[in-house]
Design a protein around this nucleic acid. Structure first.
Length: 372
DNA sequence: TCTGGGGTCCTAGGACCC
DNA sequence: TCTGGGGTCCTAGGACCC
C-alpha cells in the first residue's frame, strides 16, 4: 500500500501529489442503460422492476429522474409506483444488459490507471495519487461518457466513507469534495441516516439516546455506543460520526463467500408438498451456482417468509464440506422439515456458504456490507 | 403502500468443555 | 447441593448495502 505523499504547500513551489479516494456512481444507471437502447424513451418517466408487470409482487429497481418527480424510488412496490406515475414506462429487469454496460464503465475507469474497487454494477472506488483530484474526477466522467454515453457523479474524499457520502452531493453529473476539513460544516447538522451504514433501525436506536444528528453522534459518549451496539458496531458508529474510516482501495477480484437463491411466490405456498418441491428447486439452483466455482458447500441456510411479513431462518453446518448435489439437496429438505407446516409461505430462499479462507482474506472486512 | 433478489457482517445466547 | 469463570463453536435473527 502506498503511503500518503504530503506536498509542501506552504512554499507553493510545486504541488506534489497526494492519495485520494474517489467514488464514482452512475446517474440513474439502469434507466439510463434502457434509454441508450431505446432513445425514444428519453425524458419519459421510467420504472424498471421485476418483469415489468405492475400486477405482480415486485419492487422498483430504478426510477428515472422524471419518475422520481412523482415521489417514487427504488424499493417501492412496483404496483404502488405504477399507480403514482400516470404515464410510466414499465420495463423488466435485464440483468445481463446492465452487467455488460457495467463492464464497459469499469473498463473505462481502469484505462485511466487508478486502483479500481468495484462496489456494484454502477459504482466503484478509485484510489489515485494526484495533486488535483477534481481534475481527475472530471477525466473519469469524460472517459465514462466517451466510452458508454452514460453520466456519472464523483465524490472526492480522504477516505471511502467521505468519498461515498460526497457523491450524494455531486449528483447529478457533478463533483463534490468531502474531507476532514469540511466534514463538520457539511455533515454535523444532518440526520444520522445520511451516513453510509446507518439505516432506519439504527437511526431509531440512536434517537433513543438523544442522538439525532451526525454532530450529536460525533459528540456522543463512546461507552454508550459500545453498550448499545456491541464492541465492533459501537466503535464503528463512533468513528462514523467523525467521518473516520478506511482509505484502502483494494482491486483484488471479489470472491463470494456464498450464494443464495430466493423467490417470492405470486401465490402463497399452502401445503408442505408445495414447499418441499420449491426448496428442492432452489437447492438445485444454488448447487449449480456453487459447483460452477468448484468450491464445496459447508453450511446451508433456509429462509422463509410467512404471510404477511414474518421471516424465519434455519441454518445447519454440514457434517463435512461437500460438492455432492444429493447431499446439498437432502440437507435443504431436512431444514424444510423443521418448518411449521400450518403456515402460508410467501418467500423461500436457500443459501449455501462455501469454505471461507479465514486467513489471506481477499478483501478487508468492514461492517459496510454487500456488493453487487 | 406493503415491501425483490443478491449479498455481507455482527450480536446474543445456548451448548459444551476445562 | 449448588454452581465459578473462561473459552470455543454453533444457530437464529437482525441490519445494512446495491
Amino acid at each position: 500500500m502506498t503511503r500518503t505523499a504530503r506536498g509542501d504547500k506552504t512554499r507553493g513551489v510545486r504541488k506534489t501529489s497526494e492519495r485520494w479516494v474517489l467514488h464514482v456512481d452512475l446517474d440513474q444507471f439502469i434507466a439510463a442503460v434502457e434509454v441508450l437502447r431505446r432513445p425514444e424513451l428519453a425524458g419519459r418517466p421510467i420504472l424498471v422492476g421485476g418483469r415489468g408487470d405492475p400486477t405482480e409482487r415486485a419492487v422498483v429497481a430504478t426510477a428515472s429522474y422524471e419518475a422520481r418527480a412523482y415521489g417514487v424510488g427504488s424499493g417501492m412496490p412496483l404496483r404502488v409506483a405504477a399507480r403514482r406515475v400516470p404515464d410510466a414506462v414499465l420495463l423488466p429487469v435485464d440483468a445481463p444488459a446492465y452487467a455488460a454496460a457495467s463492464e464497459e464503465v469499469m473498463g473505462a475507469l481502469r484505462g485511466l490507471g487508478p486502483v479500481v474497487e468495484v462496489l456494484g454494477w454502477d459504482e466503484a472506488f478509485l484510489g489515485v495519487e494526484t495533486g488535483d483530484p477534481e481534475a481527475f474526477a472530471r477525466q473519469a466522467q469524460r472517459a465514462v461518457l466517451d466510452a458508454t454515453r452514460l453520466y456519472c457523479s464523483v465524490g472526492v474524499g480522504d477516505n471511502k466513507i467521505r468519498a461515498k457520502i460526497a457523491t450524494g452531493f455531486a449528483k447529478p453529473a457533478g463533483v463534490f469534495r468531502l474531507t476532514a476539513a469540511n466534514w463538520v460544516a457539511v455533515m454535523a447538522e444532518r440526520p444520522t441516516i445520511a451516513l453510509w451504514g446507518v439505516g432506519s433501525r439504527v437511526a431509531r436506536r440512536l434517537e433513543a439516546h438523544g442522538i439525532r444528528t451526525v454532530g450529536e453522534l460525533a459528540a456522543a459518549d463512546r461507552e454508550v455506543l459500545l453498550a448499545e451496539f456491541g464492541p465492533r458496531m459501537g466503535q464503528w458508529y463512533a468513528d462514523l460520526g467523525h467521518g473516520i474510516g478506511s482509505a484502502i482501495v483494494d482491486d483484488t477480484p471479489w470472491v463470494a463467500r456464498g450464494h443464495s437463491r430466493e423467490t417470492t411466490y405470486q401465490r402463497n405456498l399452502t401445503s408442505p408438498a408445495e414447499v418441499e418441491a420449491a426448496v428442492q428447486e432452489l437447492a438445485e439452483q444454488v448447487f449449480g451456482d456453487t459447483v460452477k466455482e468448484g468450491r464445496p458447500v459447508f453450511r446451508l441456510t433456509l429462509k422463509v417468509r410467512y404471510a404477511p411479513f414474518f421471516t424465519q431462518t434455519r441454518s445447519r453446518k454440514l457434517a463435512a464440506p461437500t460438492t455432492d448435489r444429493d447431499t446439498v439437496v437432502t440437507a435443504a429438505l431436512a431444514l424444510a422439515g423443521t418448518l411449521d407446516p400450518g403456515r402460508e409461505v410467501r418467500l423461500l430462499g436457500v443459501r449455501a456458504e462455501m469454505v471461507m479462507p479465514e486467513e489471506g482474506h481477499p478483501t478487508e472486512r468492514t461492517p459496510i456490507r454487500g456488493r453487487l
